[in-house]
């Protein structure tokens, strides 16, 4: 029920007075409400739950979790992908 998945904001629009975004989930594109992440910018990744973005993913923190295992995995998180 609390399922929420990461996707990339590729366009910001408005609908019925609410900020909306087109979100790309590795090829599948869908709309989500951006009212709870007002500072979001195109190209950032957000966590989406039932049609609402609830958080902007912190790239630095994501890298830290993966590096915690004592090894560097350079490029794993986006270096090979354009922003």
């Amino acid at each position: 029920m609390c399922l929420a998945i990461p996707g990339k904001v590729i366009e910001i629009t408005e609908e019925n007075g609410l900020p909306m975004g087109r979100i790309d989930y590795s090829g599948t594109v869908n709309t989500a409400c951006l009212a709870y992440v007002p500072e979001v910018k195109i190209g950032q990744y957000v966590i989406v739950h039932a049609g609402f973005a609830l958080s902007i993913i912190d790239e630095e923190e994501a890298r830290k979790t993966l590096d915690l295992m004592g090894e560097m995995f350079p490029g794993d998180l986006g270096a090979g992908e354009e922003k």
């Binding site: 998945i5 990461p6 590795s26 990744y45 979790t65 995995f73 794993d76 998180l77 986006g78 992908e81």
Partner: peptide, 8 residues
């Protein structure tokens, strides 16, 4: 998928 695969 970015932010998923690397956590699996």
């Amino acid at each position: 998928m970015k932010y998923l695969d690397e956590f699996r």
